[in-house]
Design a protein around this nucleic acid. Structure first.
Length: 813
RNA sequence: GCCCGGGUGGUGAAAUUGGUAGACACAAGGGACUUAAAAUCCCUCGGAGAUAAUACUCCGUGCCGGUUCGAGUCCGGCCCCGGGCACCA
């Protein structure tokens, strides 16, 4: 009887499920805790693909390893099930998203279970479950009560063709991602979360996180902190002042004109009558442009003169005030001082409209291009006896001096700006969490906490209305809130929350998923949080990972959670590409279906191969040939331990003394596998297992004790096979909770070591000497070698470098 | 344009962080077993030269230079690929 992956895998999956093998202990456990989390999936109709599996295999190996190391492991799985595809399917077919979601979840769960993951299914959650979104609504109320949620009229992406409001990420180059229809901007009342209040907190928090540097960098850039100064310019003939934000106050003498964003409130006031028409036309023109057109970098800059002048506070010169759409109303003060000599955008604009350019930083040629050097570049042409002189200072010195002067003279103050914008938190959709909000005539009222959840009602038509309102707005019986006398006292908010909402806190719910009176108990949260290891795709670098950190910071400030940061260590799995090296996609026809692979080669081989392919965080192409190599390995391992007839191989003996080489490899393997798992270097762990297995194959007899230890350390990688071998060896319990074997460091040290002998850095010989030999002994032995002597005799040895137990290098001149 | 990653055999990749480049595997070639095939096992496998020799020599980690006894690894400049951001003053 050979190795039959189908019977073995089905057998142990059933066993694990029936025995609740992977149910974690509660917070009263005396074991240390370890929380290892996957980014929970959106259960799409397409099912699981091999790329999903990559991250899940990695976390599963860590979870299984940590259990064996004596940790109480929380390794849960759930479903991020609100969202667009189910809703669009409903629009097309009339099938309720609840039904679609349920089917997809079943499908995903079946597929996941076939891979032999050790999830604690008693903790399964689903964001669309009222028992779950009740608490999503509850957290929203906490944010609202803290003043972090507000309503505002903002432009949304409206696609007339699809009759749908699209999220920013669903709009690509001004067209809908689906179908490529034009998208226009339409003002609508929206819920906004004040994430900008937490910009500094989110930035600071990054420092202590064990996250990939590039993800931290992405978040830093996204938050986009900039330090500068805000100062006001007097407007000639008006009492109003124009505030600008600049990071380069050292170039103030070079500010030769000003630009206001077309939406700036002062435009109307200061525009001269002869310019009114052209200014109004320009404003109208910009309003028509899409955001895409406005933010296109390479387009020609446009603008018009307002007819008014401002006074440069340093030079006291009169400078023109323009409006132009390259200045954004949403950043800084919505107005800038333009320094064409030293800012590329301003230079381009000044060049086009013949505005004056003054050189105030030495080094470039401002007639040709803006000169943007900073740091130690020298300031020139910046002197006014009545105000300030910056001449001959470096840029850095000039910045400090200018800020100093600006704040002392009362024209402005040092300021910090962030690129981060507040978070548009509502969608005009059906399949999402309803807001616990009621609009009455006078004000906004919140639904009482004990009346949560606000249930999502049944609807007949999932389409948004023509004016872009959510399908919920059509259900009067739900929208209208009545008092006991059946009088309408308010209208429910009909927008729903975006898909990010549920994933902002799911890791907290996993600590206490069945709590019906609270979102989580303090004890459980305190025991399990933070997440020790979080693995998922890099595509969530700034959205999910920033939003959930934001909520967590708020919850921390409210005293509702015990750590400021939710995810201690983050790691991104790479993509698995098709065997042609391109992204797996249906249209390319290079999609690998994990079920087909499991059917033919088994989950154990697939797990092993996905880990063996290369470093976890790299993209790498799939190769079914490569997978076959792992399948061969698994079979080889089986046939070493198990006979043809299915019983234990006679090679395995109770009372044999393993030879030194075997002990060396055995101990080295235990050490390396443990270290590699801790460092997430699964590919090298697998190759070490192969090395060990290749060695075992050559051994005539094997020590039962060592074989048992081997089975334990391979169990995280190939759990089904290990359970089967473990039981054939006569063990009654699951291998999953065996203690991880320890290794003997002294056995990993060999008695003899090979020393590389080099002459002038080139390898000339290898010698084997006893470990820790004396330097002079090694040198004299090396010098006596023919091939070494040949090269040392070409000159005289002027220096000798000796690296203990490793290398000897003669420097000959 | 700016900010991150990354360039090592025919292929996926290793290399204890400055110390024998190519572990482990795939593919390829050769052999054993077999009537044959599959499976399995054994051998070869960066390039060039040389040899009776699996003595040996030279070259080789994207390119050019540097530091060092010694560089895939560190420093400077450049080229290419992947990802992210993009008029943020």
């Amino acid at each position: 009887m050979g190795y039959s992956h189908k019977t073995i895998e089905a057998k142990w999956q059933k066993y694990w499920s029936e025995n609740s093998t992977f149910k974690s202990e509660d917070e009263s456990s005396n074991k240390p805790k370890y929380y290892v989390l996957d980014m929970f999936p959106y259960p799409s109709g397409a099912g699981l693909h091999v790329g999903h599996a990559l991250g899940y295999v990695a976390t599963d190996i860590v979870a299984r390893y940590k259990r064996m190391k004596g940790f109480n492991v929380l390794h849960p799985m759930g479903w991020d099930a609100f969202g667009l595809p189910a809703e669009q399917y409903a629009i097309k077919t009339g099938t309720h998203p609840k039904i679609t979601t349920h089917e997809n979840v079943q499908n995903f769960k079946n597929q996941i279970n076939k891979l032999g993951f050790s999830y604690d299914w008693s903790k399964e959650i689903n964001t669309t479950d009222p028992d779950y979104y009740r608490w999503t609504q509850w957290i929203f109320l906490q944010l609202y009560n803290k003043g972090l949620a507000y309503e505002e009229e903002v432009n949304v992406n409206w696609c007339p063709e699809l009759k749908a409001v699209l999220a920013n990420e669903e709009v690509v180059n001004g067209k809908s991602d689906i179908g490529g229809h034009p998208v226009v901007r339409l003002p609508m009342k929206q819920w906004i979360l004040k994430i900008t209040d937490y910009a500094e907190s989110l930035l600071e928090g990054l420092d202590d996180l064990d996250w990939p540097e590039n993800i931290k960098e992405l978040q830093k850039n996204w938050i986009g902190k900039s330090e500068g100064v805000e100062l006001s310019f007097d407007v000639d003939g008006f009492s109003e002042k124009i505030d600008v934000y600049t990071t380069r106050p050292d170039t103030l003498f070079g500010a030769t004109y000003m630009v206001l964003a077309p939406e700036h409130p002062l435009v109307d006031k200061i525009v001269s009558s002869d310019r009114k028409k052209s200014v109004d036309d320009y404003i109208l023109e910009t309003q028509k442009k899409s955001d895409f057109d406005r933010t296109e970098v390479n387009k020609d800059k446009t603008g018009v003169f307002t007819g008014s002048f401002a006074i440069n506070p340093f030079s006291k010169e009169k400078i023109e005030i323009w409006i132009a759409d390259y200045v954004l109303i949403s950043y800084g003060t919505g107005a800038i001082m333009a320094v064409p000599g030293h800012d590329e955008r301003d230079w381009e604009f000044a060049n086009k409209y013949n505005l004056p350019i003054i050189e105030v930083i030495k080094g470039g040629n401002v007639n040709e291009a803006a000169y943007t050097a900073k740091g130690n570049a020298k300031i020139i042409n910046s002197n006014n006896e009545d105000t300030i002189t910056l001449n001959d200072l470096t840029v850095d010195e000039g910045v400090s001096k200018a800020i100093d002067y600006i704040s002392k003279s009362g024209i402005g103050k040092a300021t910090v700006n962030y690129k981060l914008r507040d978070w548009l938190f509502s969608r005009q959709r059906y399949w999402g969490e309803p807001f616990p909000i009621i609009h009455t005539e006078a004000k906004i009222e919140t639904v009482k906490e004990n009346e949560l959840p606000v249930l999502l009602p049944e609807v007949d038509n999932y389409k948004p209305s023509d004016d872009g309102k959510s399908p919920l707005s059509n259900i009067n019986s739900w929208v209208e809130v009545r008092d006991v006398n059946n009088n309408i006292i308010g209208l429910r908010e009909t927008n729903t929350m975006p898909q990010w909402a549920g994933s902002c806190w799911y890791f907290l719910r996993f600590t206490d998923p069945n709590n019906s009176s609270k979102a989580w108990s303090k004890e459980k949260e305190n025991y399990w949080m933070p997440v020790d290891l979080y693995i998922g795709g890099q595509e969530h670098a700034v959205l999910h990972l920033l939003y959930s950190r934001f909520w967590h910071h708020v919850l921390f400030d409210l005293g509702l959670v015990s750590t400021k940061e939710p995810f201690k260590k983050l790691y991104n799995q790479g993509m698995i590409l098709g065997d042609d090296g391109t992204k797996m996609s249906k249209s390319r026809g290079n999609v690998i279906n994990p079920e087909v692979i499991i059917d033919e080669y088994g989950a154990d081989s697939m797990r092993l191969y996905e880990m063996f392919m290369g470093p976890l965080n790299k993209s790498k192409p799939w190769s079914t040939k490569g997978l076959q190599g792992c399948y061969r390995f698994v079979n080889k391992l089986w046939s070493i331990i198990i006979n043809e007839n299915g019983s234990l191989s006679s090679r395995i003996k109770e009372d044999i003394e393993p030879d030194n080489e075997t002990l060396f490899i055995h101990n080295q393997t235990i050490k390396k596998i443990g270290e590699d798992i801790e460092n997430l270097h699964f590919n090298t762990a697998v190759s070490q297992l192969m090395i060990y297995c290749n060695h075992m194959q050559k051994c005539e007899s094997l020590s039962r004790e060592l074989v048992e230890e081997l089975i334990i350390i391979i169990a995280p990688f190939v759990p089904h096979l290990s359970e089967e071998l473990w039981s054939i060896l006569g063990n009654k319990n699951s291998v999953s909770y065996q203690n991880w074997p320890s290794y003997d460091e002294s056995l990993i040290q060999l008695d003899n070591v090979t020393i590389a002998v080099q002459v002038n850095g080139k390898l000339r010989a290898n010698i084997e000497v006893p470990k820790d030999s004396k330097e002079e002994d090694v040198i004299s032995e090396a010098l006596s070698l023919e091939n070494v002597e040949k090269f040392t005799s070409l000159g005289s040895v002027v220096k000798t470098i000796y690296v203990q137990n490793r290398l000897l290098n003669f420097v000959v001149k």
